[in-house]
Design a protein around this nucleic acid. Structure first.
Length: 915
RNA sequence: GGGCAAUUAGCUCAGUUGGUUAGAGCGCUUCGUUUACACCGAAGAGGCCGUAGGUUCGAAUCCUACAUUGCCCACCA
């Protein structure tokens, strides 16, 4: 294009290179699309690409984090969504795809913190909040620019004029508005509960962001008065003064609930209280345990149930508190050995089980160990009742109802179960974080004299919660920030302008589809449903399409550290975007992981090139009268050959199927149908036929035009490149902006153009069936030649006895001779004598002799193989038809088919045996 | 511990209401440069559809067990 200064003469660019080189086209085409403005539905309406009152189709892009680079997860999501979006845009729907990015609070902050340490050996505290945030924002900005640029490389037709960011002003307003409403309804509360504390990052982490890892560790059995308790963490046991056992455990029948026992413990005598609780597993260890409510979620619950004291043992830095006596101030890991030594010395250590495997909790975002703590934090109460339409409900119920009612459909369906299970086990959502990067909580406290920190001295404090800060100087804002998923939860409507009642919100919400990876069903999809049902009293999207994860050829997760990651940008450079898109979409089904190899991408690069060359062939042979004439290549339906009818019939079917499959979210199937038609039927058969049957410009251009339209959503670049290189397709020359394939009308399904379908009447064969017979004859001849080892260059004579199909076969002599069958003379008769010592082929009512090519042994072998195969088929068919129950119970249609099948096998067998 | 999925050709995978001889791509074998394409064309080989039962006229498909693999949830001190 541009630089290459390609000439178009007589409507055709005849200088197209032999192989398609994506790099020469992609960036320029994307630029052209962007300039056209058609990514924006408002412009589509203005330019009449879609009607003003067209039905809307909308998707909000799952916002990539502003931390890193485009990876294959992004690539697959961009490809799938772009297919849907381009399809709907071409259908004339008012189509909107909203781009955005996510500040990804913890992930981004921890990345910047580690960079800061790496480069300057400084912590965020060295810089202070304001300066540190400046650094984060700079990083986020650079990162944002990178990922946006990379998303464009994928060909994503996003409406960049509507781009949003979770931390921008309007989205921040949405966040504060949501917070205030939930607070006013009593759904957000400030309370002391056990949370996941990351001592290294100094923040809480949500339940969903805790990862569990197996670890081998010694398991200590300790003497606790008359009991033996087992633990992997002796360093937490200082404050244990409750000993818990199952109420029905006979071994401990004599101990009563509430009974106090004096015993010797790590740092001296303590008084232990017996607690009976059914949570205890009698089979595990000795069936007795002590509890540490401050640092363990289960223990916390037991303590809550029985109203027990809770004591903090470990401080927020992960060091032991004064309760540990001589061990105070030690880091817990370092303290363990010393404590065990002391226990041993005191005779309290009963035994040690080495190699015990237990799970440790890790912060998925930062990688450091989680230490549960009781802390005062902000929570969303998921079981808290509130009124909705006069009835009492809870957030959990709203979330369940949205899916149970069928208003939201999840693909694949099996994730419904996962979703409901997650909700059933959902605890109150801790939304406050102690990091700096994010939405600062819109809560203010009245300044107090002698105040230490609000966390320690909060009771009776005056609190202000508002969308805007309170007037007056005497208020201090809460220093915590919100969990990043709080703002993500608003993501289907905050980008459309909520809380303002905008046109966009009215038109495009609820969105049509949420397309994302199944790995963030809980993190994100569920929270969007929570926020939308509560705040808007509506669903966020009608369909959730969950794609699988991209893995390497061994099924391993791709990661930089493993070195098995395919970088989408690298393979785009090497094979082109279209090939990468196809390799991610074809051969993958919703919810299932995809194993991707470079060979697979190379395979689709080959296909891209095939389409290119199909087009090149058509262009080079096109006889186009007027160079600006894109509509006058009319098909003369009175002059169609059998092959013409056939290809048009097939195209009809492909249009119907592809449309149906895309609508049904079966993108892989749609792609495979298209590839099969394009390569096997159109290129390998029809183009070869076109070389024989003479000028077919009109039909070839018609089919190509349809193909490019149908392929466009899948491989937008090469299709657009071909489109703009050939005037009869686009009706435009290179330098013009209009008539982009991107906004070409999708063919109306059912608007059949072929006559073959219409010719269907009683008993007559479909053109498709007739053509398949001819193809079958040709293939059989080629096969018989190959099996007989007939020299490729050697011509043979052929005689066909075609019975009642004589006219049909007779009319296709040119094709049978011309399509690499090596036949010099061909005679078609109704019937005739057996011809001795020649190659013989029998297919459904037709007999073929190839004269002058026989290799007696090879031919004998070939015929025997055929006979064996037929006999097998006949035996199976006879058995089925002899079965009375089959005749009685199977549908008549099936029985008839079986009978016909058997008959044709028997006929063929008879003929073969006579040879 | 609970749940979900997968198991089909050497490899990666389709197979949506049970019904022609179970398909595709890659790989493999043999052959071929014929006015688009070797990133190509032609022909072919290759499968007791994980195992064992069951339902049915008929099962890769539905049911039940089992086996192997993977994932999610729970977090047994």
């Amino acid at each position: 294009m541009g630089e290459k200064n390609i000439k178009i003469s007589n409507g055709v660019n005849k200088d197209l290179p032999k192989a398609y080189n994506p790099q020469d086209y992609e960036d320029k085409i994307y630029e052209k699309w962007e300039k056209s403005g058609y990514f924006n539905p408002d412009i589509c309406v203005r330019e009449k690409v879609c009607a003003k009152n067209a039905k809307p189709f909308s998707i909000v892009l799952p916002p990539p984090n502003v931390t890193g680079h485009l990876h294959l997860g992004h690539a697959v999501m961009l490809a799938l969504q772009d297919i849907m979006v381009r399809y709907h845009r071409m259908k004339g729907d008012k189509t909107l795809w909203v781009p955005g990015t996510d500040h990804a609070a913890i992930a981004t902050q921890s990345k910047v913190e580690s960079l800061l340490w790496e480069k300057e050996k400084k912590t965020r505290h060295d810089l202070g909040r304001a300066e540190f945030l400046k650094r984060v924002e700079k990083f986020a900005k650079d990162s944002h620019d990178t990922i946006i640029k990379q998303s464009k490389k994928m060909g994503a037709s996003l409406d960049w004029s509507r781009e949003v960011y979770t931390l921008d002003e309007k989205r921040s307003l949405a966040v504060r508005t949501a917070f205030k409403k939930m607070y006013d309804d009593g759904l957000i509360y400030h309370g002391s509960r056990i949370v996941n504390w990351d001592p290294k990052m100094q923040t809480t982490v949500s339940d969903d962001e805790v990862e569990w890892k197996e670890e081998k560790t010694p398991f200590y059995y300790l003497k606790y008065g008359p009991f033996v308790i087992a633990t992997a963490r002796p360093e937490t046991k200082f404050g244990d003064k409750y000993v818990v056992m199952h109420p029905d455990d006979k071994r401990y029948k004599k101990y009563k609930h509430g009974e106090k026992i004096e015993l010797e413990w790590i740092n001296g005598p303590v008084v232990a209280t017996v607690i009976k609780d059914k949570v205890i597993d009698r089979e595990f260890g000795s069936g007795v345990m002590t509890i540490t409510p401050w640092h363990d979620a289960i223990d916390f619950e037991i303590a809550q149930r029985h109203n027990l004291d809770k004591e903090q043992i470990i401080d927020k830095e992960g060091k032991l508190l004064p309760i540990a006596g001589e061990f105070a101030g030690l880091e817990i890991k370092k303290a363990r050995e010393k404590i065990v030594a002391k226990l041993k010395k005191k005779g309290l250590l009963v035994k040690v089980e080495e190699n015990y495997i237990h799970n440790i909790a890790i912060n998925a975002r930062g990688g450091s160990l989680i230490e549960p703590q009781i802390m005062k934090q902000w929570f969303i109460g998921v079981n808290k009742e509130f009124k909705r339409g006069g009835k009492k409900t809870t957030l959990k119920k709203l979330m369940q109802e949205a899916v149970r009612s069928g208003k939201i459909k999840i693909i694949p369906e099996r994730f419904n179960k996962v979703y409901f299970h997650w909700i059933d086990n959902l605890r109150d959502w801790c939304i406050s974080r102690q990091i700096w990067f994010g939405h600062q909580i819109p809560v203010w406290y009245k300044k107090q004299e002698n105040k230490k920190t609000r966390k320690q001295e909060n009771s009776g404090e005056e609190v202000y919660v508002g969308i805007d800060p309170p007037k007056g100087e005497e208020w201090i804002q809460d220093g915590d920030t919100l969990d990043t998923w709080f703002s993500s939860g608003l993501w289907t409507f905050s980008p459309l302008g909520w809380p303002k009642k905008t046109e966009d919100l009215k038109t495009y919400h609820p969105t049509s589809v949420m397309e994302t990876g199944y790995d963030i069903l809980f993190f994100w999809v569920a929270r969007m449903i929570l926020m939308t049902t509560y705040l808007l009293d509506d669903i966020p999207f009608k369909t959730v399409y969950l794609h699988g994860l991209i893995r390497d050829e061994k099924g391993k997760k791709m990661s930089k550290s493993l070195g098995n990651a395919i970088d989408p940008l690298e393979v785009i450079k090497k094979y082109g975007t279209d090939a990468v898109r196809l390799s991610l979409v074809i051969g993958s089904t919703p919810g299932n992981d995809v194993k991707l190899t470079e060979e697979k991408i190379a395979g689709y690069r080959n296909f891209t090139n095939k389409l290119w060359n199909i087009s090149r062939f058509i262009m080079q042979n096109a006889k186009v009268k007027n160079q600006n004439d894109n509509s006058k290549f009319k098909i003369d339906y009175n002059k169609l050959t059998l092959a013409d009818n056939w290809i048009l019939e097939e195209l009809d079917e492909v249009r119907l199927l592809v449309d149906k499959k895309i609508k049904g979210y079966e993108f892989s199937a749609a792609g495979e149908i298209l590839r099969d038609f394009t390569w096997d039927k159109f290129a390998d058969w029809y183009l070869e036929i076109a070389k024989i049957e003479g000028d077919k410009s009109n039909i070839l251009i018609y089919v190509l035009k349809n193909l490019l339209i149908l392929w466009h959503p899948f491989m937008p670049f090469v299709t657009e490149a071909i489109w703009s290189s050939f005037v009869p397709l686009s009706g435009t020359t290179e330098d013009k902006q209009d008539n982009l394939l991107m906004v070409e009308k999708w063919p109306k399904v059912g608007s059949s153009i072929s006559v073959g379908v219409d010719a269907r009447d009683g008993g007559a064969m479909l053109k498709k069936d007739e053509m398949n017979l001819i193809k079958d004859i040709i293939t059989s001849i080629r096969n018989a030649r190959a099996e007989n080892k007939v020299e490729p260059g050697k011509k043979v004579k052929a005689v066909i006895y075609a019975g009642h199909l004589k006219d049909l076969v007779g009319s296709q002599v040119d094709l049978i001779k011309g399509l690499r069958t090596g036949i010099s003379e061909l005679e078609v008769k109704e019937k005739g004598e057996k011809i001795e010592n020649e190659i013989y082929i029998a297919i459904s009512g037709i007999e073929i002799y190839l004269i002058g090519g026989i290799d007696k042994n090879k031919e004998k072998e070939r015929i025997k193989k055929e006979i064996d195969n037929l006999e097998k088929m006949i035996t199976a068919g006879e058995k089925r038809l002899k079965n009375k129950e089959f005749r009685a119970k199977a549908p008549a249609e099936i029985v008839k088919k079986e009978e016909e099948k058997l008959k044709s096998f028997q006929e063929a067998l008879e003929k073969l045996k006579k040879q």
